[in-house]
Design a protein around this nucleic acid. Structure first.
Length: 118
DNA sequence: GGGCTGACCTACT
DNA sequence: CAGTAGGCCAGCC
């Protein structure tokens, strides 16, 4: 019989959560970028699942993760998306309509430096 | 083992 | 610039 909790024990989830926890306030990242920094290229959807399964005890800045084009992943009107937009605004992230300002998206180079140094 | 689902991505129209 | 189509990968019946 399959364990339903198998995904929560996946070590990849731990790396994903670590990357998200290291995102500086006021900046955002795409799911694909998070996956890439976690050493899991092409697994953006796994990042989404990891966020969904993330325990509240970790207090992850989940609101700093959005789509590659800078839009909120949730559908417009979704309470979670509303809260995400509200938290980002509180951090000084500028919204241009549904998308965040391009300069709010952290370049991968910068985060590589943050993790591994020059 | 086969098929559906999803907090996605890229390219094209 | 907005909307659509196909692709990819892992988790769960």
């Amino acid at each position: 019989m399959m364990k339903r909790n198998d995904g929560a024990e996946n070590p990849a989830y731990g790396r994903i959560w670590s990357v998200i926890a290291a995102i500086p306030a006021g900046t955002v990242l795409g799911y694909g970028q998070v996956a890439d920094l976690a050493g899991l290229p092409g697994r953006a959807r796994m990042v989404a699942r990891a966020l969904r399964e993330a325990p509240d005890a970790l207090q992850l800045p989940w609101h700093r993760v959005l789509r590659a084009d800078g839009r909120i992943a949730f559908a417009p009107g979704d309470p979670r998306g509303e809260e995400q937009r509200r938290r980002l605004l509180a951090e000084g992230v500028v919204f241009n309509g549904r998308r965040v300002a391009p300069d709010a998206i952290a370049p991968e180079r910068l985060l590589d430096f943050k993790f591994w140094g020059p």
